[in-house]
Amino acid sequence: MDTKTEVTTNNPGTASLMQSEGPLVALLALCVVGTVFFPTFLTPLNLANILRQVSLTGIVSIGMAFVILSGGIDLSVGSIAALAAVLAANLSGEYPFLAVLIPILAGIGMGALNGLLITRMKIPPFIATLAMMLGATGLAFLLSDGESAPSDTSGWFSQVTNSDILGVPCIGVIFVLALGVAIIVAKHTPFGRSVYAIGGNEEAARMMGLHVNRDKMLAYMLSGGCAATAGVLYAARYTAVSPGDFAGWELTAIAAVVISGTSLTGGIGKMAHVLYGVLILGTIPNLINKQGTLDSHDANVITGIVLLAVILLQSRIANQEEHSLGDMA
């Protein structure tokens, strides 16, 4: 036993190394392509642009990462963001402070409802959050009367949100800070580790005395809160908010998390790598845009292909690793 242990632990294996750094490699490859073909790619202005583009869905991806790590999925994030944005827009004129607070609380509340449906009523996460998605979208459209809601962006919050710090867009800073906090939560708090444990083996986590239901609830609340925050920031950035603007956000977030190497079955993945996933998804349309002749639909096709390539690579590596591990046992 002892000798075997030593052999396996001292050789982490190139496979797992590739798996852990794959997303970074893909991102760097994209950047190299961009730098070589488009002189305007590697400019502070363009990079700030990319950051601005990805920040909001990036914040959503952070919450999604917690949910996926816990072995669940949250399809309702786009709708929660939409509802939060509409709420924020409606409140922005008269109550600028409440316009920030209430939507975020509403988002957390909707996340809690997701959590209750999943942990108490034992509805599969996919369905529970699908129902929440329909419900929240419906509410968002009703609140905006089916049109776009005007948002007052003259308040201090909007000013801050739209400003730059030393050329770095403020929402980008918010995203990166949020990600930093998320990394610490994931790695250094009992809640974070519990999420990994639940995703890794829920039954074992229960047996180990972890508060499985509570922590799953928290993950969905976090996800709802992140989505709502993104929605509020959106309302602070644009003078008109339509719930339709948020269609597909949940897919972008899921894609970002999956590209980052997080396993959809839960328990495996690095929070920091979400950054790579988010940036990869933001860089592709940027490059397409620079190329000029292709349109946004082509961007989708290419995004799909990149997504597939990354996933195939990861699954191949994971299978290999499983195989070699099996031999060791």
Binding site: A197, N201, E203, A204, M208
Partner: peptide
């Protein structure tokens, strides 16, 4: 059947 979390 060991109740541990293999990935941690």
């Amino acid at each position: 059947e060991l109740n541990l979390i293999p990935h941690l």
